[in-house]
Simulated assay, not measured.
Amino acid sequence: MLRKLTSTLARCQRGAMAIETALVVPILCLLALGTFDVSSMVSRQQELQSAANEASTIVLAAANSTGVSSTDLEKIIESSVSLKPDQLVISQEYRCDAATARTSNLADCDTSKPIYAYVKLVITDSYTPLWTSFGVGSTFNYSVTRTVQVS
Rank of each mutant, 00 (worst) to 15 (best):
K4G: 01
K4M: 05
L5F: 11
L9Q: 05
R11G: 10
C12A: 10
C12S: 11
Q13C: 02
G15H: 08
A16P: 00
A16R: 07
M17Y: 07
M17L: 13
A18T: 11
E20I: 09
T21S: 15
A22M: 11
L23A: 10
L23E: 03
L23W: 03
V24A: 14
I27V: 15
L28A: 14
L30I: 09
L30P: 01
L30G: 12
L31A: 14
L33T: 08
G34R: 05
G34T: 09
G34Q: 02
G34D: 05
F36T: 09
D37A: 13
S40D: 04
M41N: 02
S43P: 01
R44P: 02
Q45Y: 11
E47M: 10
L48W: 07
Q49V: 11
Q49Y: 09
S50D: 15
S50C: 00
A51G: 08
A51F: 04
N53G: 13
E54P: 02
E54T: 15
E54W: 01
S56M: 05
S56H: 03
T57Q: 14
I58T: 09
I58L: 11
V59L: 04
A63V: 04
T66F: 10
G67D: 03
V68N: 04
S69M: 01
L73H: 00
L73F: 01
E74D: 10
K75E: 03
K75A: 04
I77C: 00
E78C: 00
S79E: 10
S79R: 11
S79I: 05
V81M: 04
V81F: 05
V81K: 02
S82G: 00
L83Y: 04
K84C: 00
K84A: 13
P85K: 01
P85W: 00
L88G: 00
L88D: 01
V89M: 05
Q92L: 08
Q92A: 11
E93K: 14
Y94R: 08
Y94C: 05
Y94S: 06
Y94Q: 07
R95N: 08
R95E: 09
C96E: 03
C96Y: 06
D97M: 08
A98W: 14
T100V: 13
T100F: 10
T103N: 02
S104Q: 12
N105W: 02
L106P: 00
S112N: 14
K113P: 00
P114M: 07
A117N: 14
V119K: 15
K120Y: 06
K120W: 05
L121A: 06
I123K: 01
T124H: 04
Y127D: 00
Y127F: 15
T128K: 13
S133M: 12
F134Y: 12
F134D: 05
G135K: 00
V136R: 06
G137D: 09
G137R: 03
S138K: 12
S138A: 15
T139A: 10
N141S: 12
Y142R: 06
S143M: 08
S143C: 08
S143T: 13
T145I: 11
T145V: 15
R146T: 11
Q149T: 07
Q149R: 15
V150G: 08
S151F: 11
